[in-house]
Design a binder for these strands. Structure first.
Lengths: 146, 146
DNA sequence: CTTAGTGCAAAACATTTGCAAACCA
DNA sequence: TGGTTTGCAAATGTTTTGCACTAAG
């Protein structure tokens, strides 16, 4: 059993949520696809192929709860749906996303490098930053060369 | 007539779009509210109050066209709709947004400060950045003190 | 047992589209 | 005048909700 799974079960209990087969199954799909960014519908389709009889409403309700508990983070790629990814429990902030405008691929980068910006924002605007969402648009290595 | 209005009319013509009353009215609303971030529905309601008989479909079609011509930029605040703001024609990139998680206010900041990050991304990932969307979440000056 | 959680179908919501009428160039 | 653009209403696609049933603790 992975560290994430243990964490998941304990935190559910601590938050007075029941551990159901559906919640477990949805978390499994998220962990199996942790490098991807899945929509509710994509998760639903994967669950359907596995012949769990989980309904789409449960997927939405579960993802919403997972987000509240910070098990997942949402990313909005402006493609008409919200996408989810298991959180990096070690990370303090969310990671950045590199979005290629040619092939649509998405790379995650851990590195932060926003200290300078956040300090400036505090000094000049009096705004205290606790989290950030950074999307960088451009061309990936392959598309730039090709 | 403001610089933006001139720019708007000329660019419409150059792109082979007609200057209609509706497009003018929508641009007016956007310019009058340039510090805000309006949704299609909010723009539609403002237009309705002004007794232009503009339909919601026209608002969507126009905003979509305005975005293609870079007259407006979208921002997604994860509140169920896409929001729009007139572009800063001087700016090379989009400005950053400071989003207060207590009162929901949004401050725009022009300053970039992403050169270090973007250089690092190029060096380490071979990714060429052309634009970015940065949202910083936290507490504004008022809410932090209060 | 008891109440949270589920599946289903219907509803809600933002957005898009087809089409006949209206309008800009 | 002719091709764009528009308003309307219907359609779409995602997400939410009401409700009776099921299952975790």
């Amino acid at each position: 059993m992975s560290k994430k799974t243990i964490n998941f079960k304990e935190q559910l209990k601590n938050s007075n949520y029941k551990l159901t087969g559906q919640r477990q199954a949805i978390m499994d799909v998220l962990i199996e696809n942790s490098s991807k960014h899945l929509s509710a519908d994509e998760i639903y389709k994967i669950l359907s192929e596995k012949n769990t009889g989980i309904g789409i409403a449960t997927v939405y309700r579960t993802l919403s709860m997972f987000e509240k508990l910070k098990f997942v983070t949402r990313i909005n790629l402006d493609d008409g749906c919200i996408r989810y990814q298991v959180s990096d429990f070690q990370a303090e902030h969310e990671h950045h996303h590199l979005i290629c405008e040619s092939c649509g691929c998405i790379q995650d980068i851990k590195d932060d490098q926003l200290e300078v910006l956040e300090k400036k924002v505090l000094a000049e605007n009096g705004f205290h930053v606790y989290n950030h969402k950074v999307k960088l648009y451009g061309l990936c290595n392959k598309c730039y060369k090709g």
